[in-house]
Amino acid sequence: MPHPIARLHDRITRFGFYLGGATLCGIVLCFWVEVVARYFFNAPTLWSSSLVAYFLCIAVSLSMPELARTNGHIAITVLPERLSPIMRQRYDRMIALVAGSVCIVTAWIIVKETLRQFDGGTTTALGLDIPKYWVSSFICYGFINTSLHFLRHALFAAPPHNSNEQQEA
């Protein structure tokens, strides 16, 4: 049984992923509205393409940590597959440590830039302009939480290898 904090963390990640799913539905709806409004009512919206762009960012950013949690990011695993199971586990943890560290540096860079966008009052540059940090914050979340999952994987326990991985092994 994982630690309660780990469980809470997993739950937050999972919740984010569901939210991303809802956002994806939003993308589909925006496109439908735009087509109908433009073709049938001759009244194209000036917001749908911007909203689609923001939604895509939100959906992708919210999903990245879930992918890290469930081993969903792809890699070329020819080499690690040749290792013995024990070595494989150690090796995977080492890779996760590298991945977590790189994501932390990335998150740090993007957070710094997001704060600069906040201070400078930078907006987005699409039809429907909103403060840019509203959108960038999701990317920050994506990388911070992704790195947390990689680091958890590296420092604590074997990852929950998902079913696909097992099929492959």
Binding site: L24, L56, C57, T106, I109, K112, R116, T124, V135, I139
Partner: peptide, 25 residues
Amino acid sequence: FGMFANSVYSTVTSETLTTIVLFVL
């Protein structure tokens, strides 16, 4: 750093990439 962050931002807000999501769906 700005270039770094913006390269990620501009990709994930690119409308053309929604094609990928929608086709997979």
